[in-house]
Computed example of a mutant assay.
Amino acid sequence: MFGDIMGMMGKLKETQEKVEATKKRLHTVLIDEASNDNLLKVTITANREIKSIEVSDQLLEDKEQLEDYLILTINKAIEKAGAVHESEIAAVAKEGMPNIPGLDGIFK
């Protein structure tokens, strides 16, 4: 009985380390997003850190339009980054979870 618990604890610790390593790796996963007309481009990491923003000269002439473009494009990039982040972390966590009845549906 205690051997099973110790084995599970070891597996959970190993999984936690893998999750942390995955989080670090996600700093290097870049997601590019652009406005529909490509006047604004954003690059963000899977950890939702903005790496670059490219703005067309055309957008610099209209502050309100630029603000709208920034909000829409950055939000789309954050949504994509969040999806990548969650799926990567869930995959690592699911892989390392011990077989506990009732918990098999958590990471689907």
Rank of each mutant, 00 (worst) to 15 (best):
M9G: 02
S35W: 10
D4K: 10
S35R: 09
T43Y: 02
N99Q: 11
I74H: 03
Q58M: 12
L72I: 05
K18F: 01
Q65K: 14
V55C: 11
A90K: 15
L103H: 00
K108G: 09
L30W: 00
M1N: 08
N36C: 08
E14N: 08
L70H: 07
N36Y: 08
T45L: 07
L103I: 03
V29Y: 12
T43N: 07
I106P: 01
L60W: 03
Q58P: 03
N75D: 03
D62A: 10
K11D: 13
I78W: 04
I78K: 12
E20M: 12
E61R: 13
G102D: 09
N99M: 05
S56L: 06
D57Q: 13
M8P: 03
M8D: 05
A83Q: 12
L59D: 09
A83D: 13
G105Q: 13
A90Q: 07
G96E: 07
K94E: 11
T73M: 07
D62L: 10
G3W: 02
A90S: 15
E33A: 15
I44R: 01
T15V: 06
E54F: 07
L39M: 11
V42Q: 01
K63L: 12
I71G: 01
D32K: 14
E64C: 02
E54I: 08
S56I: 05
A21L: 10
